[in-house]
């Protein structure tokens, strides 16, 4: 059976990893390749690189970063942030990325999902969705532009549409949970897995190993993503995996 994936997420700005990473002896705490190699060593199943500059002028920096990482680190690499065209995707995939994550661009230009899936295969196209609970409408709402622009769109409905358009995977971040460290939004993921049949990466809220255990025991998502708990060494991937195994969750 396919194992559940544990995925660290790295914010990259002009070819440098933002936010210190201090879990191992790095000579350069901002070097994406060194950090990626350390995570590979720890047993991470995949890495997500989020381009936080993500402007057209700086696109080249991310391509160069991925080119460099992919020449030293041999595991699946997903890149997101500011991908606006098939040409952007092609450049990143050619540099060694395995998947491209589309977020705001997928809302503004849904045809990009289909064009990417047709050209590179669905497995290359991840649609990233940031969501917030909208109590007035009793639904999860889609928010774009890095959490700044709410969209009048039901996130579960959008997830279904994105898959129909060609998304091979969904990376869904709960903005309500993000940064709280009090667990993943299990209700959200159960709503999503009920309506789509592609792998889902859960993101937002992880603060303890038990949060991963709850995620994989109480939902059928395929992967859990976290950033700060790994970067600051609050959790290590080996200890997360050891506990998951003991809890009966299949991990690598």
């Amino acid at each position: 059976m396919i194992t559940k994936r544990i995925i660290p997420c790295l914010d990259v700005d002009h070819g440098r990893v933002k936010k210190g990473v201090n879990f191992v002896d790095l000579t350069d705490v901002g070097d994406p390749t060194e950090i990626a190699a350390a995570y590979e060593q720890q047993g991470a199943d995949e890495l997500v690189f989020l381009d936080i500059t993500a402007t057209k002028e700086h696109r080249g920096a991310m391509v160069a970063t991925i080119e460099q990482v992919a020449s030293q680190v041999f595991m699946p690499l997903t890149v997101g942030g500011g991908i606006n065209s098939v040409a952007d995707m092609q450049a990143l995939l050619r540099a060694g990325a395995d998947k491209c994550a589309l977020n705001s661009a997928a809302i503004r230009h849904p045809e990009l999902i289909t064009q990417g899936a047709e050209k590179f295969g669905r497995q290359c196209i991840v649609v990233a969705i940031d969501v917030r609970w909208e109590a007035a409408k009793n639904r999860y709402q889609v928010v774009i532009d890095g959490g700044h622009t709410p969209v009048d769109l039901d996130a579960v409905q959008w997830a279904k549409e994105a898959v129909q358009l060609g998304a091979g995977e969904l990376l869904v971040t709960s903005m309500d949970k993000d940064g709280t460290k009090n667990g993943f939004d299990l209700r959200l993921y159960n709503l999503l897995t009920a309506v789509v049949n592609v792998p889902i990466i859960a993101s937002g809220g992880c603060g303890a190993i038990q949060d991963f255990t709850d995620l994989f025991q109480e939902t059928t998502v395929d992967a859990g993503l976290a950033a700060s708990v790994f970067h600051y060494g609050e959790l290590t991937i080996p200890e997360v995996k050891t506990e998951l195994k003991e809890a009966g969750v299949s991990v690598r």
Partner: peptide, 12 residues
């Protein structure tokens, strides 16, 4: 049921 296609990820 319960098995997604493509078969994607780490398998033993």
């Amino acid at each position: 049921v319960g098995l997604k296609v493509p078969h994607m990820g780490w398998d033993t």
